[in-house]
Simulated assay, not measured.
Amino acid sequence: MYFPTAIEPSLIAEDLGIWAPIDHQRVISLLTIGLGVLYHREKAIFLEPLPETMLDEGKASQVPDVSLRDNPTAQTPIIIEVCHTNGLKGDLRKVIRLIDEDDYGIREGFVYDYRTSKWLRYRFGDGGLTTESSFSEILQLDLNQFLV
């Protein structure tokens, strides 16, 4: 069995490294479970929640903490990044860049800081300005309900 001695620097630079503290993974799990029940069991939402899934299966790509995928169109209209306060700026830049570049059809992005319990939302066309909100206009539901 091969054990690499270090993480490739290029992977870290491309935000493809792994950062998985328990609190971080717990939030991803709660969001995926709550949204998953609405999608799989209740058929109440049209986007499938997927934890830590590549945006582009054809090549190395960004991996949001939670992606909400529209399977018929192969687009990902919503992404969610989970962070703690020290990583907030970097995750927010990542979300804004992914939405503004418009490569994956992302229309709404969220960053959740699990240390402060604060949400930030960014939408396509917002011109770099975020709002403090956990309400998804696309899904018409408050994402924070899965964390309380």
Rank of each mutant, 00 (worst) to 15 (best):
L35H: 05
L31H: 08
E48S: 10
R69P: 00
D103V: 12
R97N: 12
I78W: 09
F110A: 03
L50F: 01
P49Q: 07
I96R: 05
I33E: 06
D65L: 01
Q62H: 14
K43T: 06
I96K: 14
L30K: 10
I96G: 00
R107C: 11
P77G: 08
P72V: 07
L88A: 14
V27L: 06
D102G: 08
L92G: 08
V37R: 03
L98M: 07
Y104H: 14
T53E: 10
Q25P: 00
E108Q: 15
I79Q: 05
D56Q: 12
D70T: 06
L47Y: 09
H24I: 04
K59I: 11
F46M: 08
P49R: 02
D103M: 11
I33A: 12
M54N: 12
I96V: 13
G34T: 04
Y104V: 13
Y104K: 07
Q25T: 04
E42N: 05
D23W: 04
T85Y: 05
F46H: 09
I106F: 05
L98E: 12
E52H: 05
P77M: 10
L92R: 13
P51Q: 15
V37Y: 08
A74G: 06
L50G: 05
E57R: 11
L31R: 07
E81K: 06
D56C: 14
R41F: 03
E42H: 09
D100Q: 05
T53K: 09
V37L: 07
D103T: 14
V95D: 03
N86F: 06
G58W: 14
E48G: 01
V82R: 01
G90W: 02
L47E: 04
Y112M: 04
R93N: 14
D102Q: 15
A74D: 15
H24D: 04
E108L: 10
G90Q: 08
K94N: 15
L68I: 08
D70I: 07
I80F: 00
D102V: 06
R107W: 06
D23F: 04
D102C: 08
G87Y: 14
I28M: 03
P49W: 04
I80V: 08
R69N: 10
P64H: 13
V111I: 15
D91W: 01
R93D: 15
L38K: 05
I28Y: 04
G36M: 04
L68R: 12
F110N: 00
I45T: 02
L50Y: 03
E81G: 02
F46E: 11
I96Y: 00
K94R: 11
V95A: 07
L30G: 02
D102Y: 03
G58V: 11
R26Q: 04
V27F: 03
A74W: 13
M54A: 14
D70L: 11
I78K: 10
T76M: 06
A44M: 10
L50V: 09
Y39S: 00
G58Y: 15
G36R: 04
E101H: 09
H40Y: 07
A74Y: 11
R69T: 08
E81S: 01
Y39D: 01
A60R: 07
P72A: 12
L38S: 08
D103Y: 12
G34W: 03
R107E: 15
L47G: 01
V37C: 05
Y39E: 02
S61W: 01
R41H: 04
T53A: 14
I28F: 02
L35E: 02
D103G: 12
R26K: 12
I33T: 09
L35F: 02
S61A: 13
E42P: 00
G90T: 13
V63T: 10
I33G: 05
